[in-house]
Design a protein around this nucleic acid. Structure first.
Lengths: 205, 205
DNA sequence: CCCGAATAACACAGTTTGTATGATTCATGT
DNA sequence: ACATGAATCATACAAACTGTGTTATTCGGG
């Protein structure tokens, strides 16, 4: 496939079989695409990953199945777009105090994962990442974006973190949300930040 | 459904429609059950969660589809059994030094998650936990078991940890494996342990 | 206003899914 | 050893989902 036109992260691809992804610049395309993604989030939240069927989704979105296949010839692409879309927004303010920035960052992470549809989308992509390279790359992209955004907020403090250090900070919150399935309290966030900042042999920056 | 016979965590249930889960005590049942679970792990590792079909699984396991429905009337039950089975084993030795115990514990966690089939099973159950109570409970059970096992190893040190503290320790490793999809190095484990033990205001015990 | 695209409206074969039914194999208790 | 009940097999069936077409209609940009 060949890249053609671009619009933020949404690229229009041309496939060998004369099929092509709709032009993201077209408002009609944007409209149906948004309607589909919204319906997908609903279905995902209501019925889980197994219930996200092209048939059901088409009905829910008021769209034909062929439209779905045109937009996402591979089903995994839909999930990928679900997590790449709406990932931005809601970031806290930069600050000089790493403790404050880290705490607010984790709080925004918690807020973003309050949405069941988003949780389901992230897990679905993660689950298929082992067998689908596109999903694996999307996850890597998401991580890189968030790491960069976090480091942006840390600029006033003069500290920058590596990917490993970022995971040491965010890991507990992610595990609490996805695996423990328990409330991420302010105390939990405070504890995570304190542990993270309590640098033993080396500074986390 | 009514509980009837028990064998470790495997309980035989009787359903309203005259259907019942096979008796776990029967060696024939155990045999086919093991063969099915082994085949399920293969399929899960090879084709991902979407490829784990009752039809494919039946063929792979050399079993009829009806046998699958008899063992697991609900598909989610299969995934649940996949993570509950084989979760034990490979635990490190107890010790008086929390740092050593924690590091060895994380190493054993990493070792357990080296198996792609196990990773896929955990993610699949996690993904459906939001819509399937059984899966949610299985996850909670798994967490409780591991927390108890970890506290067992910590007994010689006189330290016991809460669920939150356990997640603060294991979260980074889980996130590294599932979301970062990157190698969990010995250095990463060492850093996680050091951060965890560097108690800021309160001791983690 | 016209042309090309995006979409709708169908159609079709193949697969998966639940759910039956009867025959056959196996484990267990007497 | 043998009879009984279970577990499994071998089928069958309708329903839903899946890819993939074809044609007609609607919409947006030049």
């Amino acid at each position: 496939m060949i890249h053609e036109c671009e619009l933020h992260h949404t690229t229009c691809m041309v496939y060998d079989m004369g099929y092509r992804t709709p032009d993201p610049g077209n408002p009609r395309v944007q409209s149906t695409r948004d309607r589909i993604l919204a319906a997908a989030r609903e279905l995902l939240a209501e019925t889980g990953p197994a219930g996200l069927t092209y048939s059901l989704l088409a009905d829910r979105a008021g769209v034909t199945r062929q439209t779905l296949y045109r937009h996402w010839p591979a089903r995994s692409g839909l999930l990928v777009d679900l997590i790449l879309e709406g990932s931005d927004g809601g970031y806290p303010e930069p600050g000089a105090d790493p403790a404050v920035v880290a705490a607010e960052w984790l709080a925004s992470l918690r807020a973003g994962l309050r949405d069941p549809a988003r949780r389901a989308a992230v897990l679905a992509v993660t689950a298929q990442a082992d067998t689908d390279p596109d999903s694996a790359q999307a996850l890597a992209q998401l991580l890189a974006d968030r790491l960069a955004a976090f480091n942006d907020l840390l600029k006033p403090s003069g500290i920058q973190v590596t990917a490993e250090e970022y995971t040491l900070l965010s890991g507990p919150v992610l595990a609490r949300v996805f695996f423990d399935r328990a409330e991420v309290t302010d105390e939990f966030i405070a504890a995570a930040v304190e542990h993270w900042l309590a640098a033993p042999s080396e500074e986390p920056g």
